[in-house]
Simulated scan of single mutants.
Amino acid sequence: MSNLKKVILWVLILGVVAGGIFTYVVYQTIFADNTAFNNDQAHIYIESTAGFNDVKEELRPLLKDLDAFETVAEKKSYVGNIKAGHYVITKGMSNNDIINTLRVNNVPVTIRFNNQERLEDLAGRLAAQVEIDSLTLLEAMRDPRFLAEKGFNQANALSMYLPNSYQVYWNTSPEGLREKMWKEYENFWNQERKAKAAQMGFTPLQISALAAIVQKETAKADERPRVAGVYVNRLKVGMPLQADPTVIYAKKLLDNDFQQQIKRVLYRDLKLDSKFNTYKYGGIPPGPISMPDISSIDAVLNYEKHNYYYFVVNVENFGYHKFAESIEQHNRNRAAYVRWINEQGINR
């Protein structure tokens, strides 16, 4: 074999080897596993203002080779096209898979909230679960134009938010989140529930306000229809609701202090000048004193029909109440409660 042929052969061999190495490197960079976490999944949260460096910092503890990820990201034009959201990458994903996921697979998150007393509390609870900050969200919730358009006002705006679990995008806008809650509210207040409220002579907003009182009065779900029946009976004959939880709310509102703990309503509290004080003002308060559960709203809509007008804590079966048809019977029941509460030394 001539020297020329030998040179050509070696060149070919080296070319094949170099090509193989190049192919291997390309494959490893683009298609090989680049995940460094042990769990089955890892969750990525990319903010709306994030740049590629922010994405890299988010991914740094999750990848074996961050430089390889950056190389592929540049080749696939992801570096200048960041998409905000919540993304889930799975163990064994390649750089190619990860970038494809970060481009299109924004996964909704589940938000949860329970019985909040004010929109401020709700905004804080939600802000801990989505990208929006609480002040921006609160501003959107209080927007007078939005509230008027949907039939609410500042006093009853909390009624629109029903305690439950909901699916939303982590990077949803304040307007998008409140619109989601409005649609859930509309779905809840279907024709059947609206018809029941109308038959009782109340609006859905009045039912929610009444349900909030019922829920504050008793933690026992099985007792709520009976408590609701007491309040419905009072309203039918023009009696004031005289609900202690409304007095507690009125005091917190007037003091601008919702952190205070009030275990006992005093006689002087009954004179507080607030539309939420149902000892001073008749009818249903202008809004809910807290966010009622769906079960509490349904308890009011399906209230128990009876002849009770009064109830007080049952000191023989705590958590439940003793009910009475007459003020004389109620006073006897109440005397037992007052003795007990005095024995406990509860003054406020």
Rank of each mutant, 00 (worst) to 15 (best):
Q199E: 15
F276L: 02
A68H: 08
E70K: 14
Q259G: 15
W189P: 09
K91L: 08
M160P: 04
S134A: 14
E58P: 00
Y267T: 07
L254M: 14
P108H: 02
M93R: 06
E70D: 14
Y27R: 11
A36D: 13
R103Q: 15
H86L: 08
V107M: 12
I98L: 07
L59Y: 10
P61D: 04
Y309R: 04
D255Y: 07
G229Q: 06
F152K: 06
A228M: 02
L177T: 06
R112T: 15
K180A: 09
F202H: 08
G282T: 10
N302R: 02
A250W: 03
L272I: 12
E328V: 13
T90C: 02
D33M: 03
R339A: 12
Q260R: 13
L126T: 08
F188W: 13
Y303T: 05
H330D: 11
L235R: 06
S295C: 00
A155T: 10
S165W: 09
I284M: 06
S173D: 11
I213P: 11
L177P: 09
L253I: 00
N331S: 12
V72A: 03
P174Q: 05
T110E: 14
I111W: 11
Y185R: 05
V11N: 09
W189Y: 04
E74C: 00
V315N: 15
Q154F: 03
G287T: 00
A221N: 12
S159T: 12
M239G: 01
V107L: 10
D143Y: 07
L205C: 00
K280Y: 09
E328A: 15
T101S: 13
Y45E: 09
V109H: 05
L14K: 02
K76S: 07
N81F: 09
D244M: 06
V232C: 00
N106P: 06
Y78E: 02
S173P: 04
R339G: 03
V26G: 01
N307E: 15
E186A: 01
T218W: 10
K56F: 03
Q259E: 14
L270W: 12
N105C: 04
D121S: 14
F258D: 05
D257F: 03
L210A: 06
L59K: 07
N333T: 10
